[in-house]
């Protein structure tokens, strides 16, 4: 069974926020739109975004690591946000594992957002329905797009290719291989939500890699 997901490589993410605004831009005028912004030119502007890039610090000076951490819905394989939804608006697609909200059914009770440990859902303050990353379902199956562009907006945008997209259940997919080779991990494994999205950890190169055909012309 297919499980589409994002795999995010923290080893190369520089925290540029391209995935944040490209997501907003794609989705506000798309099937999952609109994504409203309150007080867009006023105090404490606050809008709906499906994806955020956060910054964490690990350790103490001078051994500090700065970690840029993008986060959107993880399309959990056992998504706690789905069974709690009273209306069935929140659902997980059998065919590809994408967790979606049907805006036409949603009553805006917010219960699903309580049931998401990751803070991945945002209520739209104007349409009053729950919104979240759709994994760009309106791109990835759009046959009018060239094959190479049937990928999420954030993945297309990311300048460091830190965002990989694919089927994590297909062992031969790029994402599965990356998870296997790079010890991709899930967030908050303690809750058994089995997030489909995975993160690839930092990997430190201590010394210059050896060259296969090192010939010294000196």
């Amino acid at each position: 069974m297919t499980q589409l997901a994002l795999v995010i490589d923290l080893n190369v993410c520089v925290g540029c926020h391209a995935c944040v605004t490209s997501c907003k831009e794609w989705n506000t005028s798309g099937a999952a739109g609109t994504l409203a912004d309150d007080r867009p030119y006023g105090t404490d502007p606050s809008g709906t975004f499906f994806n955020r890039v956060q910054t964490f610090e690990v350790g103490e000076f001078p051994a500090t690591q700065t970690v840029h951490f993008p986060k959107s819905c993880l399309h959990c394989e056992d998504p706690p946000c789905v069974p709690v939804c009273p209306t069935g608006a929140s659902y997980k697609r059998a065919e590809d594992g994408i967790v979606l909200v049907d805006y036409d059914k949603c009553i805006g009770c917010k219960y699903c957002s309580w049931a998401c440990p990751y803070g991945a859902r945002e209520l739209d303050e104007h349409q009053k329905v729950m919104k979240k990353c759709t994994l760009c379902v309106d791109r990835v199956y759009d046959r009018s797009l060239p094959e190479a562009e049937r990928r999420p907006a954030c993945v297309m945008a990311c300048p460091t290719s830190a965002r990989l997209f694919g089927d994590v259940h297909d062992p031969d997919s790029e994402v599965s291989k990356a998870i296997a080779e790079r010890a991709g991990y899930a967030l908050m494994p303690e809750w058994g939500t089995k997030p489909a999205n995975r993160y690839l950890p930092r990997r430190k190169t201590e010394c210059v890699p050896p060259s296969p055909s090192s010939s010294s012309p000196r």
Binding site: F49, F56, V58, G59, E190, W191, P201
Partner: peptide, 27 residues
């Protein structure tokens, strides 16, 4: 049960958020 460490999956005695990625608040 959840900690900053498990939230982002990074080990380390001191894991501290510096920015949530926006300043004006959100849902």
């Amino acid at each position: 049960r959840s900690t900053p460490q498990s939230a982002i999956g990074v080990e380390g005695a001191r894991v501290e958020q510096k920015s949530m990625g926006f300043l004006g608040g959100s849902f």
